[in-house]
Design a protein around this nucleic acid. Structure first.
Lengths: 236, 236
DNA sequence: CGTCCCGATATTGTCGACAATAATTGAGAT
DNA sequence: ATCTCAATTATTGTCGACAATATCGGGACG
């Protein structure tokens, strides 16, 4: 019952996903310049499909392009991360509201099962590793789909999802509160089950706003320390 | 003090904007198939830049593409229009909240001036024509920018703005309540002036939700009538 | 010594042609 | 007459080459 991954049938799609993964996991450094002929050779493809891939990456905010100048991997800034959290707060809150109205029982049961899995993993690993890393994103991913809103889902799951993943790789530092996060997830699903859209939206917004504040506090508290790296432009 | 239109310097951008306009104003019918060689000849450009333009239009939901099959102009459905309104409600509400926190006095004064212009036009034309057609979108466009959030602004002003314009052209029917809309705009700006983010968000959400309900009511009331045209797939 | 201008180099934007895949047409069988 | 299937046509995906533009370096001038 996972996502219906329609696998890439064209070169442009394949190289798009490959480069996206490379960027998200940091194999290509944030801010690094991209030279089309180089990358084209590297992925064994012509410049045509490569340019198409770069353009898609641009719409996902993973690369920035300037006409006649070139493309470079998006540089991660604290401000942009906060921007993403604000956008998520608004959109995922709305997604919860909509999901409460018209997602079927099976979907809710599936969400509960997902959280049970998280809880099991969580108890074992005592709050580190998997859960907050990808599991959390998976939950939000599922909520977005449960909204039944094509626009909201597309923005959250295509445009912002991979950006979040990219930040996760760089910000492996402070993503605390796994107990609290799991509990908040549970309450959100409970609100969904009661078909209380207002409350579901409220809970999701508080959940995301809380995560944002945690990041903001950690950032302000550790300026000039290890987190300052996200500000620098790591050119090659 | 209008938007900083960095004019297109490349063929792909020019043809992108040209096709976008053609689609938005209905010169190319919704749902119509797009054949790359034809359009390329039509706009006096090669297939390379044309494909780039089509891809950008795809990210804005103005065309839909299927690999190895082709592209067609997005067909306007009622459900998708409602989806857009829900997304706007969430995002523009957040934009208001953010704008209340950190947009400068000049920006607010500028918004008030814009509404004065609308009021003048509105008084003259008694609520028809300009105001609800483009003026309303302009206001929301400005609010988005005032948020100072790059992500939110990009989604609202790049991705959804032109989709809304497209629907406006097709739904020239029921966009009533210009008096009320202008008044609601005024209250939103007033809340911004008082730096009341909570209230500004609330007002904007009510404003957009109200517009959505007007459309929903008009649609349900006139099923099978003139509005049913938005459901059909107008192939050529 | 710093700044500005100009030529060489590299990179991007655009084009036309070829290959791969889908849509279409027509023939044949039931 | 209709359905199935194969050959044909048309359209998309990909490639390599050319033109236009920006970047980098050296030299002249203030």
């Amino acid at each position: 019952m996972t996502q219906a991954r329609n696998l890439p049938v064209t070169m442009a799609e394949r190289v798009f996903e490959a480069i996206q993964d490379a960027i998200v996991r940091g194999d290509i450094a944030p801010g690094a310049k991209i030279t089309e002929p180089d990358l084209a050779r590297q992925y064994g493809v012509s410049r045509g499909p490569l340019r198409e891939a770069l353009q898609r990456l641009e719409t996902r905010h993973l690369v920035e392009r300037i006409p006649h100048v070139g493309a470079r991997v998006a540089s991660l800034s604290f401000e942009r991360l906060i921007d993403i959290y604000h956008a998520r707060e608004a959109l995922e809150g709305m997604a919860c509201r909509l999901a409460a109205s018209h997602c079927d029982e099976a979907e809710i049961a599936s969400l509960e099962a997902l959280l049970d899995e998280h809880a099991a993993l969580h108890e074992v690993r005592e709050g580190r590793g998997y859960f907050q890393k990808e599991g959390d994103l998976d939950f939000h991913y599922r909520i977005a789909h449960a909204s039944g809103n094509a626009i909201v889902t597309q923005i959250l799951c295509e445009d912002l999802y991979h950006l979040m993943r990219m930040y996760r790789y760089k910000f492996s530092g402070y993503r605390g509160r796994p107990h609290q996060a799991l509990e908040e997830h549970r309450r959100i699903v409970a609100a969904l089950k009661e078909r209380d859209g207002d409350f579901a939206e409220l809970l999701m917004r508080r959940h995301i706003a809380g995560a944002r504040r945690t990041i903001e506090d950690a950032y302000r508290q550790s300026r000039g320390e290890d987190l300052s790296e996200i500000e620098e432009n790591s050119d090659e």
